[in-house]
Design a protein around this nucleic acid. Structure first.
Length: 929
DNA sequence: GCAAGGTC
């Protein structure tokens, strides 16, 4: 069997279609893996890299003393399968192959992916010949040619890719760990470092610094209004910017009639049709259409998967000769594009335009089939339409402009104005994305005298450089060689996810600035794009066989060791620097009690706002747990408390805006405070002026202090505190009931669990015990009826009973056994004799008696008599010896307190479930024995 | 729990 391995499923399918020709193609799917078969050939697609480099085992603990971050530099590197299922299927096929062809993408990473496949094949099949097909487009011509002239795999090229992987892992992981540990960051809060992300972050930080350091300078510009035959013309002074206002004013004053046309220069300008699309250009254009970089790529990926456009990750801007451009235009000339498509066919330029970059892996991004707006969908249509029109434009003639430059003089002052008219629309008739505008000037000739309608002196200011937008940043990254077409937008997302940058356009956060500062002081290499450039140089040398991968890695490790010398010597310093710089982001505002700063603090998943002067000041505001979202401060500040508003942010959810934390704290505690009988409005406001907002604040205060604050006696203060504790207990029970209702009631329209609970609370049912005693009329009012109501009540009763039992001191393990035996309420323990309970539940008699005593003590009833385990066992076997006594009879007897011969003989009352005659017979038998 | 690079 001939096994062909492609880089991805779609490529595999198309290769199979082409090579299979007229042969019947069968598609098999195993899990999520597709296999295409024709004749004796089988084609499989990988998912890019199916193995990953990692450190050998033993380096997982970040805080290990024996394996500190630095030890990662020399740690062994292993490869681990990331797509286990796919790998096992691949190897299964490889075992039975007599020929293998690697058909991954035609670039460095593709060669490495090919080598990974090669090693997986070799691991299970030592002898099968393996070759490599190179193709720059998946078209019949290219594929047939590539498979007719296969070559050996280029191990040097793959080694170049592998070297990059290892350098990235070693630098990235060791530095990430070091700096995270130094700044005491863990969990989802680490500080990452990498060859691509760190220089990208540094660009944003640098830009922000430039903006901050920028001092605007005033300057002046002069414009002049004139007209010709009713057509208004604006001309500008040729001096441009005046630095001195006086000079500008002098020029304005000298701008006097006559205004004479001194020169008219007419020309023609060629406006070249745009070049084919690569990923970066697509993202930039998408940015103008309102798509973020990551969103644009997601949509493009979708369009590609559905067959509407070609592969969206490419650096290529030159169509290959094998691409049937005319055929594609014909295919697209439907529906919305019918007319424009026909126009393109009728006006096609001799050769399509070409861009500067030409690569071999994929064609430029172009449409592959027609999709109507309905099929494509609203969110993606603008992007798809752009891709189609851009494709049209690359096949359309250039546009032509007529230009006119007119020089004028007003008194001694020179002015100029320009106009432009589109004379040949060319590609512009089907490509409306450029903002170049026509500006028609009237006919003017040298010597003409025009009126001066006005002379304006505009005061302006120089402006700082603009912040990066996502697409501008991606362009810049491409210029600097940072990242690839597939990863640039992901890098930006990563920086946002790490809270290094935010906003649109992008600004650095304090964390982002702190990390960049530290890195550029102690690990400059990783913050510079030059690291990527020199890595690429080394990769080229490895590819050409001029250098060994091992040498490059050794050099790189030496460098990293030098960096660590710096870092380790300054670890304390680095940690405190970052922590100091970033603390500001968690500061909410002044503490209302002591005036120091309040900070958001996190401990595990719980979070609260606390005073930085703790423990001297214990003021704090509780916040919802982190599962609702991490608390961050927003820009808004409360005018009353001068505190930043707080927002809870969670992945995949809209942020929950709490507003001013103190306002919301006060509001949410107001109702609870009102539940304390002694709390009048006045008393509450007195409490507020002393910064006591919640019930816990009242309870936590020293009783004497509380008395002083409120101007009441100590006794009254104590009773207030007691009432407060009562309210807390009551609230706690309510919460429990709410939770209970939530787990037992399915939400339905107009009847949410919360609503049900609130109706019950209003009616005075405030805990689970009360719910167990509630009547069905009330539940009906709350919207719970029939069987559901019965279950709710009986479950509540069960829950409440078992709580009572637990509170009385019956341990959970025994309780479980009792409940399983149907002994659930305290009454059951009194109604049934301990002997019956013991037999039913399997708990030993001595323990049962101990537990029953707990209950009888509580209800002030007589305790049950003592029975030892031994006596109980003996009595039980004695009874079983009596004729006609089995387990069932034994149990009935036990329920009535009969557990041995003696108690049987002493029994006076009837035993439920046993007839009097039988009982009498038993007694006789017992007396005999 | 770290990187960057493929692809889903």
């Amino acid at each position: 069997m001939h096994l062909i391995i492609a880089e991805k499923n779609i490529a595999a399918r198309r290769i199979a279609e082409i090579l299979g020709g007229k042969e019947k193609l069968s598609t098999k799917k195993d899990g999520s893996v597709f296999v295409y078969e024709f004749g004796d050939t089988r084609v499989m697609g990988l998912r890019g890299h199916v193995v990953e480099v990692d450190f050998e085992p033993g380096y997982d603990n970040w805080r290990s003393v024996t394996h500190p971050p630095r030890s990662l530099i020399e740690a062994g590197i292993i490869k681990r399968a990331t797509e286990a299922k796919l790998v096992s299927l691949l190897q299964k096929a490889a075992r039975r192959s007599d020929k293998v062809t690697i058909a991954t993408d035609y670039d460095t990473e593709g060669e490495l992916i090919g080598k990974e496949a090669y090693e997986l094949v070799r691991a299970v099949n030592k002898t099968v010949p393996i070759d490599r097909a190179h193709f720059s487009a998946i078209t019949p011509e290219e594929i047939n040619r590539a498979f007719a002239e296969t070559k050996p795999l280029d191990f040097n090229l793959a080694a170049a890719g592998e070297t990059r992987q290892i350098v990235d892992l070693v630098w990235g992981a060791s530095l990430t760990r070091f700096i995270s540990i130094a700044a005491k960051r863990g969990g989802g809060n680490i500080l990452s470092v990498g060859r691509v992300q760190s220089p990208t972050l540094a660009m944003i930080v640098d830009r922000e610094r430039e903006i901050e350091a920028f001092i605007p300078e005033p300057y002046w510009m002069i414009r002049l209004d004139t007209e010709k035959g009713g057509c208004e013309i604006e001309a500008r002074h040729t001096h441009g910017r005046f630095k001195e206002k006086a000079d500008a004013q002098a020029s304005v004053a000298a701008s006097i009639p006559p205004l004479t046309v001194t020169e008219v220069i007419e020309g023609e300008k060629n406006d070249r049709a745009p070049s084919p699309l690569d990923t970066t250009t697509l993202i930039v254009a998408a940015g103008r259409l309102g798509y973020s970089a990551a969103n644009a790529m997601r949509i493009a990926e979708d369009l590609y998967m559905n067959g509407y456009i070609s592969y969206p990750r490419t650096d290529n801007t030159v169509y290959s000769k094998s691409l049937n451009l005319k055929g594609i235009v014909q295919d697209l000339s439907h529906g919305v594009f019918a007319e424009d498509g026909k126009w393109v066919l009728g006006n096609m330029r001799a050769k399509p335009t070409r861009g500067k970059k030409e690569t071999t892996d994929h064609p430029p991004i172009h449409p592959t089939s027609y999709g109507s707006p309905e099929k494509i969908g609203e969110g993606a249509w603008k992007l798809y339409e752009f891709i189609v029109r851009r494709f049209f434009a690359t096949l359309s003639p250039d546009a032509k402009w007529k230009t006119m430059k007119v020089n004028l003089s007003a008194g001694t002052e020179p002015y100029t104005t320009t106009g432009s008219t589109l004379i040949v629309p060319g590609y512009r008739s089907i490509y409306p994305y450029s903002d170049a505008k026509e500006l028609n000037l009237p006919e003017l000739s040298v010597g003409m005298i025009l009126p001066i309608n006005a002379v304006h002196l505009d005061e302006k200011e120089t402006k700082p450089p603009a912040r990066y937008t996502q697409s501008r940043l991606i362009q810049r990254m491409e210029e600097l060689g940072l990242g690839t077409k597939s990863t640039r937008h992901e890098v930006i997302q990563k920086l946002i996810g790490r809270k290094y940058i935010e906003g649109n356009p992008l600004r650095p956060t304090l964390v982002g600035r702190a990390v960049t500062n530290t890195l550029s002081t102690y690990a400059d290499t990783i913050t510079k794009p030059e690291m990527t450039r020199s890595l690429e140089d080394h990769m080229n040398q490895i590819k050409d066989g001029q250098k060994q991968s091992a040498n490059v890695l050794a050099e790189s490790r030496d460098m990293l060791n030098c960096v660590f010398n710096q870092l380790e010597a300054n670890e304390q310093h680095i940690g405190s620097d970052i922590m100091e710089m970033t603390v500001e982001e968690s500061i909410v505002g002044p503490c209302p009690v002591c005036g120091h700063s309040l900070r958001i603090r996190r401990m595990g998943s719980s979070q609260f706002i606390g005073c930085m002067h703790y423990p001297d000041c214990t003021f704090n505001i509780s916040l919802p747990p982190g599962t609702w979202g991490g608390a961050v401060r927003t820009k808004e500040v409360c005018p009353v408390h001068s505190l930043h508003h707080i927002s809870l942010v969670r992945k995949g959810a809209r942020p929950w805006d709490l507003g001013c934390p103190l306002c919301s704290h006060i509001a949410s505690n107001k109702e609870a405070l009102g539940m304390i009988p002694e709390c009048s409005e006045d008393l509450i406001s007195t409490l507020h002026t002393h910064h006591m907002y919640s019930i816990t604040d009242i309870i936590g205060e020293n009783a004497d202090d509380l008395a002083k604050i409120l101007g009441i006696s100590r006794k009254k203060a104590e009773s207030l505190q007691q009432s407060a504790e009562g309210v807390i207990a009551c609230l706690k029970r309510r919460t429990e009931m709410k939770k209970f209702i939530r787990t037992h009631i399915t939400p339905r329209r107009g009847r949410s669990p919360v609503k049900v609970a609130n109706t019950l609370i209003e009616a005075g049912v405030g805990d689970i015990t009360a719910l167990g005693k509630a009547d069905s009329a009330l539940l009906k009012e709350a919207g719970v009826v029939g069987e559901e109501a019965e279950t709710l009540i009986s479950e509540a009763k069960k829950e409440s009973d078992s709580r009572i039992l637990r509170d009385l001191g019956i341990p959970a393990a025994s309780l479980k056994k009792y409940l399983a035996a149907g002994i659930t309420a305290p009454e059951d323990f009194i109604r049934t004799h301990p002997a019956g309970i013991s037999i039913a539940s399997g708990v030993t008699i001595e323990t049962v008696i101990k537990h029953v005593s707990l209950i009888t003590d509580y209800y002030s009833l007589k305790s049950p008599g003592k029975i030892t385990n031994a006596a109980f066992r003996k009595g039980r076997s004695d009874l079983l010896e009596l004729p006609g006594v089995g387990e069932a009879t034994l149990r009935k007897l036990a329920d009535s307190g009969i557990y041995d011969r003696k108690s049987l003989l002493a029994a006076e009352d009837a035993v439920p479930g046993i007839s009097e005659e039988v009982l009498a017979t038993l007694k006789k038998e017992a007396a005999k024995a």
